[in-house]
Design a binder for these strands. Structure first.
Lengths: 147, 147
DNA sequence: GTGTCGGTGGGAAAAAGTGGGGCTAAGTGG
DNA sequence: CCACTTAGCCCCACTTTTTCCCACCGACAC
């Protein structure tokens, strides 16, 4: 389980330290890819397997499906940690997420998200009012799903 | 598993370096052929065997499928790596994929695709909005798998 | 105060990618 | 059958990128 927000520096080589609390839960086979709302997402191997399995391009794969898989896999990369526990964010990933010299590393239960520092501030620094409204709307949706 | 996008040069002799991360996973018997949407596809031996075994011309083969098989097998070629880890793209393959001095080499889970640089940009350089949709569809599929 | 742990930065070594020359083999035409 | 041309392959050299290693700094605990 990944919890909390950590602000870490991204150096000139694109290296980003993953918080030690997260790293101990990330065995080899961890994958990073482009995610929703312009963040990057880090999938532990088990989570990634859920995404990956059952997806395979063949000559009978439908056009829509081909595009989906190309975008999904073409934008992903396996995480490799150096001896200091850092990963290298590719130039493409950095520009997608608008990440410069700093990033927010956020634990979101089953996976980790990496955000542009500023973009995360707008989300993470929500006021109690905003938070309440969002919670209410989600609760409303869940009720209608149950029906 | 093949992941990520790499932009590499294609020199005057039609040589293209395959990213080292991909090359390690490509034993002898790897095959390159024409793929959908004007890309080239590189099949590792196991994937190629899967294709080969499933397709076979018989008296009951539909006309359309015969055509598909002729194209797929007729334009296929075994990959040969030089000492620098490059393959030579045939003139036919280059013109099919519209590849000039640069190409994008993309890992798509079970196989590798080679694209005209520009054509790939239209797929891979999608906006966060498009990736958000992709993610929604992946999540949707997971839910249906769980049922 | 001293030791450990987590994060940051930079230099050096190694690996990966790029380009070109020249030899060999294969196809083409007389 | 031989000469010629072309395309393919191998090898070497260079440049850039990546990775590895070491050193430092600050915070916290003992």
């Amino acid at each position: 389980m990944f919890l909390g927000t950590y602000r870490h520096a991204v150096d000139a080589k694109g290296r980003l330290a993953i918080p030690a609390r997260f790293r101990e839960q990330l065995p080899a086979g961890t994958v990073i890819s482009k995610g929703a709302e312009g963040c990057l997402q880090v999938y532990p191997p088990k989570e990634w397997a859920r995404v990956k399995d059952r997806m395979r391009i063949t000559s009978t794969t439908a056009a829509e499906e081909r595009k989906l898989q190309r975008m999904l896999f073409g934008s992903a990369r396996e995480c490799e940690f150096d001896a200091q526990g850092r990963i290298v964010l590719s130039a493409d990933h950095r520009s997608y997420a608008g990440i410069g010299a700093a990033a927010a590393v956020v634990g979101v239960n089953n996976l980790i998200e990496i955000w542009n520092d500023e973009a995360w501030r707008r989300i993470g620094d929500a006021t109690p009012d905003e938070y309440t409204r969002i919670q209410d709307r989600v609760a409303e949706r869940e009720r209608s799903n149950d029906r």
